[in-house]
Design a protein around this nucleic acid. Sequence first.
DNA 1: CGACGGCTTGAGCTTGCTCAAGTTCAGTGG
DNA 2: CCACTGAACTTGAGCAAGCTCAAGCCGTCG
Lengths: 259, 259
Amino acid sequence: MTDPSGETVVDIARLRRSCGACALSQLCLPATIGHEDMPKLEAAVRQHRPLDAGRTLFAEGSPFNELHVVRSGSLKTVSVQSDGTEQVLGFHLPGDVVGLDAVAEGQHRCTAMTLERTTVCDIPFNAIEDVARRVPGLQRQLYRVISREFVRDQEHLATMGRKQAPERLAIFLKSLSDRRRALGLEPLELTLSMSRSDIGNYLGLVIETVSRLFSRFQDEGLLTVQRRALRILDYDALARLAAGMNDATEGSRQRSPLR
Amino acid sequence: MTDPSGETVVDIARLRRSCGACALSQLCLPATIGHEDMPKLEAAVRQHRPLDAGRTLFAEGSPFNELHVVRSGSLKTVSVQSDGTEQVLGFHLPGDVVGLDAVAEGQHRCTAMTLERTTVCDIPFNAIEDVARRVPGLQRQLYRVISREFVRDQEHLATMGRKQAPERLAIFLKSLSDRRRALGLEPLELTLSMSRSDIGNYLGLVIETVSRLFSRFQDEGLLTVQRRALRILDYDALARLAAGMNDATEGSRQRSPLR
DNA sequence: CGACGGCTTGAGCTTGCTCAAGTTCAGTGG
DNA sequence: CCACTGAACTTGAGCAAGCTCAAGCCGTCG
């Protein structure tokens, strides 16, 4: 319980506990909190030990108690459809908040599973509410984080509705890259923690299509990929493809171009 | 100031002002607020006069000031993609909250347009925050309403990713019907306030496909439809279709049935 | 080493998109 | 009151993107 105020030093145990020292604090809930209020937040946050790959963080239908923030590693959220098939709803990287789906009904509407060894912070929801009431900045930041997830879902929705398969995959890869950049990580080296099956499911494509597109992108010099290791060679071309600026055949009607 | 065209009830002017008297109060923010706190909320809520069809409530990129609750009528939210096409993100019926997308960035990420003559309540966001701090029930209810929209988006995502065209339309119609029932309205008589083009865009289908499916559903005795007036004749069959329990050809692989 | 899971590649087929031509209906003007 | 116009919708025929089915490959684990 010593407090050696070492700013950038290597006290892992402390780092793992303290929001103030967390590398994610600018993206996460502490972002707009003053130094003096930080202990109030930290008191509410519980720290998990790392979870192995393939573990369930919470399951569809289970009661809702806490929000979770990804600290390291990654998660997928999936929901089971009425016909028994599963739908991957999202992939969650460090700084992302998961569990918001459950607030409305008091129980989870999707299942969250780790894709690799992953650490999360647990934040009991009633504690958040208490602290948020006393720390206005936290309140606002919580809304902001929620809204961020909301926007991400809406962008995904647009992708699913309107895009061809190659565009979908390009958008997905660009998004992963951009999120890595936002986290201060090398944006051109991706380690795909999710399977081809997860990717296909997420993008509304079958696994074979995903596989073929990876091969095609590789042939076209956009990237190299072997198993889970992916390197983006031509980010700009990928971005153009994602934006629908398909160098080759464009001008097609897309689906329902309003007006 | 006279109020002709009284629908069913008497004092429209008062009804339009008071949350306590609003038919939507069980779905909307007042749901969990005690009688004694109601005036605090009502003080924050501003009332719009009705908007004609085709009006913009807020536009993509405009600054964020307030949330809106649909009181009567309906809205669509759309966002413009990088390639210039538009994507319909959602349709919003009485009781729905719109504007949440804007909290993260402080400006709207989509445009909201009325589909018919529509009344909304405007709730300045900073007022909400203030009141919510003093009225814990409102805080919780606000989270709940936000989460409800979240869940709806996720369900839509699952539809877009996994379903065949007939299932998508069936899900859409069933959802409209169910939402009408939740509002205490006749669930089998729908007035489609949105165009075929909007529906197709929302569901990721071209307008021709939507039109053909309406005809087909009609041939199969599921419903009757002429222009905007739709009557569901066999809700159960529609629900089965929506659930993927396609009476005829089933057992197809769907897209990426995880595992 | 063999078996299994995850991934890749190939060949054909189906769904739903594209293109094109009608039809209906509300609104407008003669 | 009817013809005219345009927007919204319907219907048809053909085509291709991406799904289905099938086989084979690679790397890991027991």
